[in-house]
Design a protein around this nucleic acid. Sequence first.
DNA 1: ATGTGC
Length: 483
Amino acid sequence: MVGARDLKKIGDFLYEIPTSHRSDMRVPARFYADDRLLDGITGDRSLEQLVNTATLPGVVRYVLAMPDIHQGYGFPIGGVAATELPDGVISPGGVGYDINCGVRLLASPLEADAVQPHLDQLATVLYANCPSGVGQGGPVKLKPGELDEVMQNGARWALKRGFATEADLDRTEEGGCLAGADADRVSARARDRGRGQVGTLGAGNHFIEVDVVDRVQDEDTARRLGLFSGQVVAQIHCGSRGLGHQVCTDYVNLFQKTVRKYGLTLPDRELVCAPAGSPEGRNYLAAMQAAANYAFANRQVLAFHIRRSFEQVLAGRVKNHHLFQIYDIAHNMAKIESHTVDGRRLTLCVHRKGATRAFGPGSAVLPAAYRDIGQPVLVPGSMGTSSWVLVGTAGAMDQTFGSTCHGAGRTMSRHQAKRSVHGAGLREELETRGIKVRAGSLSGLAEEAPGAYKDVDRVVEVVHGAGIARRVARLTPLAVIKG
DNA sequence: ATGTGC
């Protein structure tokens, strides 16, 4: 267990666990927090997991955790670890079971007052059009061989099928398509699980939300993104469903063997990995990218059905309900990126698990329209609480390999939450606050109770204060759709 | 997170 005495405070919102803490650490471990969040962080195994990642072969500079850190499989959720190619390792546990879990934000030109009278119907129609729940299949029938196209081309596949516009792709991380994806590295079992699930939401913390922009923190940047106070927007939070889950399972199993083959010593079995430049490592990367493309396509099809739902409910009732895309980000992904470490330009495998890329102004990979303001960062809060739109900063490039937080972060396990919260009562409470709720499972709802999460406003305050993202606008929910 | 775990 890592306790308060093992920590060194090295900045207003920054702590370090030095390599003297444990003899197998190759680099220090750093994490961002304030005093209040610190209490929760030292209460579970997440810092010990972070220290474990500091022992990985090829890890550079320091491993990092964001203020929304909590316990995960092997790596903590909210963790960032960068390893140098080709001998530095890639680990499926550093990405997570939900490969390219991420968030998409669509914005309408409408004020909340115009939508309010139709909100109940909108929630019902969204729930009907966007299938959710564990194991749930979806509306898209793929032709033979078409699943390969989804995995190779991601949101580009969706464009060809009429589910996307060029503008959507332009405002998606990586253009919605990772070029290195190789569908041949994805097992038959993973394909079987994913075949019928394109355009579905899933369960757990995944959701579709209709929100209103309730606070604008930076007027200029908000305007540049197309956001204004009182505006109705829609958020999608979901990933690669059963396909990504199976890809992770397959490679975790396979990598049990590669750990021995390459003579790797690990403090936790859950950190199984392979050198990123080895055949096994490259195969996982290609399969992970295929699953990531599937997730981009999934969110794109959901966006299409959200647009259709707005059309169905609002056409003829309001003047313009077109939903344009602000951005789509991944928060479970390993990326091959170039970063400067101690004055040297290195090619790194950056694992972001429950962490968001937050590239600052000037980055060539950003859409032209956003290049001078930095990458939009979408931070969903817990159910019934606010969410945030941030932008990446030069500070993130300097401090965190261009990364920041991804959400509120759990304080209670799912099991704990289910025991202490009643789903029906929670729904009642949300509805009393004027939030429309459509949920397939009441126990699923209980697992996502706001009380089971940290305060997202505080998490965002820390990353803003630390300079690894900048606050632009806050969103508050009008309607929530869940599995 | 997940065709949910002992």
